[in-house]
Amino acid sequence: MIISEIIILLSALFAASVLLIYVERKLIAAVRLKKIARVYGLMQPIADAFKLFFNETILPRGKTQVAFMLLPVLFFTSIVACWAVIPVDEGVVLADINAGALFLVAMFFLSICLIVVIGWASDSKYAMFGALHSVAMMVAYELSAMLAIVCVLISSGSMRLSDIVNAQAEMWYCLPHFPMFVVFFIYALVRTNCPPFRMSESGNISDGEYSIEYTSVGYIFIAFARYVNMLLMSAVITVFFLGGWLPPFEVELFLLIPSVIWFGLKMSLCLLIFIFTKTAFPIYRYDNLVQFGWKMFLPFSLVWVIAAAGYTLVSATGKF
């Protein structure tokens, strides 16, 4: 039944993001020479979760209260919903719909929209500033990322994600569409709030984040949504550019490994890069970042789309 499938998906996501939180902390601690708490630091996330659950819930006064309470759930849903169309293995997908790629894009846009509303509902200038920052940054890269997806769609000739993966049997799209792969990867960094493309963590309230007013369960939802989003972006990169569940070469040994494992390995590779960029780089200033997105990535992606379409047309029809 569909309900049981949804429950399985949600619990898998829950387990994966808890693992991700743990691994992220361990890696960042290793890079930053931090000492790790007892029992390999395993109790730390649990303690954090407890602390968050028993935090006092602080609500803004005024008429945005209902929206303030509802929005984290909606935000979480808009990100989890994307997982419905992501094929982890041949046929292992909640809904293998025709317009899977479009559904993903739609949900990306919807979550951006929700960030603005979260900023508004928080009823605070700092949250609003954070929301506007995040949205302006995401929108600046969103268009180029969508064009990157368009390139993949042109090459694969389908919008069904499982078809896109199967079309990469000969060559993963990260090779022919390498620049677009880079563009999409940077978009993923922007979306997952990894430096060099995000708000600073330097404790300055004036460039805080949109979730600044949330405490307790509301914050849990938003924080969790971020980790699910990290998982999601790595899965999307895997599906679009890294050949999904397909092994890198058609070697006997590789074929022995279950394809779900391949999917997981590729995802973990992306996640590792996300986590290490978090520790390694300073952060671009907002205006540089937006300029970079609009002035360099967008024109370049447009040119690449035309080139990809031209190449596909020529190779399909055999004439100019």
Partner: peptide
Amino acid sequence: LLIIYAGA
């Protein structure tokens, strides 16, 4: 509809 209207 979702992308253009609800999103952008």
